[in-house]
Design a protein around this nucleic acid. Structure first.
Lengths: 191, 191
DNA sequence: GCTAACTCGTATATTCCCGTACGAGCTAAA
DNA sequence: TTTAGCTCGTACGGGAATATACGAGTTAGC
């Protein structure tokens, strides 16, 4: 947070606009160009390069920003009480986050060193994993499948729902119900 | 099938090798280069261009070939009897097909006009959809979610499992069990 | 064995995007 | 008001990939 030489206010503003634009464009198209991002941010390309030395650092900054936002939202979710209900609340908050930055993740995967994305993405995954564990302890969630897979599967379903919605095959209004119902089935003990 | 001017046998052979190489490379990396594909096929790049005018047509040919192969495999699956058991059989056969060409699908999405992939992909989707419908009629599968979503969700789970396996987070030997268990939960009526 | 079809190398044009260099002009902050 | 930081245009160089042009050599099929 504290840099050696202090940064001017207009620079902060530019950086914020660039990161916001990057999140928006990369969230839709993982192949979005630096040119396009700069244009969408309303700054010249050179200004962008003044703050981010290359594409990778820009993508990482955008991802980190999106994840920080997510953390802020998700940490406010009440995960106590009945695990099923807690799961519903978590999904209700997670859904739009995933929808907005699913392809941002893909962009990061291409540009960042292997494992880096997973590392940055650790917090939300850990939150879900812990909730699942707690549900398992209370026999509310299944235990016959690896927990890593369960966490991953939830993510794949969320990403899939985002894709379906973007393609117009799913109405945004019904997505939350569909997602929660699907995930609950996935986590419920069989039989 | 019948072309205006007859094709020579060596040309047929080249095409077959190119398509096979394209399936293999694009199945692993959607960004595989024409150069790489030609090299893997053991032909010169110019030979490749002699048969496929551009990247899009090559990708489409590879996808079509993979789907034709899949059709041959899947049409042999017995879908009669108990829907749950039939689903297991279908998944057991589908799994490796999806795993082998999941990124081929991604490559096609990038290059082909929107909707084209879905159109080519219609047959396997229709097969699954019909099975789900039959299961719904017998109260074996849920009816509280749109059937289009159910079909899509199964696909997303399969793709996700393929990704997990490729990343080494899932053992290939246990994937079939995990996939079938997950999908069955997803399709089973809640409550 | 003749011919058309096929193979395939080299060279080249094009396009797209990334990243750098230089420099003029503007603006925030002490 | 001074100065260091910031903005941003234009121009350039480089790499990677697609696609075309030309042409010489090889092979299948009648």
């Amino acid at each position: 947070m504290t840099t050696r030489t202090r940064r001017r206010a207009d620079a902060e503003r530019s950086i914020a606009r660039i990161v916001a634009a990057a999140r928006e464009l990369l969230g839709r198209d993982p192949a979005a160009t630096i040119d396009e991002i700069a244009a969408a941010a309303g700054v010249g390309r050179m200004t962008l390069y003044g703050h981010f030395p290359n594409r990778a650092e820009l993508v990482e900054a955008a991802l980190a920003d999106a994840l920080a936002d997510g953390e802020r939202t998700l940490s406010a979710v009440d995960l106590t009480g009945d695990p099923g209900a807690a799961l519903d609340r978590l999904l209700a908050s997670s859904w739009s986050l995933v929808a907005e930055s699913s392809s941002l993740l893909a962009a990061a995967q291409e540009v960042l060193p292997p494992g880096r994305v997973r590392q940055l993405h650790g917090a939300p995954a850990a939150r879900l994993e812990e909730l699942i564990r707690r549900g398992q302890d209370r026999d509310a969630f299944r235990t016959d499948l690896p927990i890593g897979w369960l966490v991953g599967a939830v993510h794949y379903l969320l990403k899939g729902a985002a894709e379906e919605q973007r393609a117009g095959r799913l109405d945004a209004a019904e997505v939350p119900r569909i997602v929660t119902a699907s995930v609950r089935s996935l986590l419920t003990p069989p039989g």
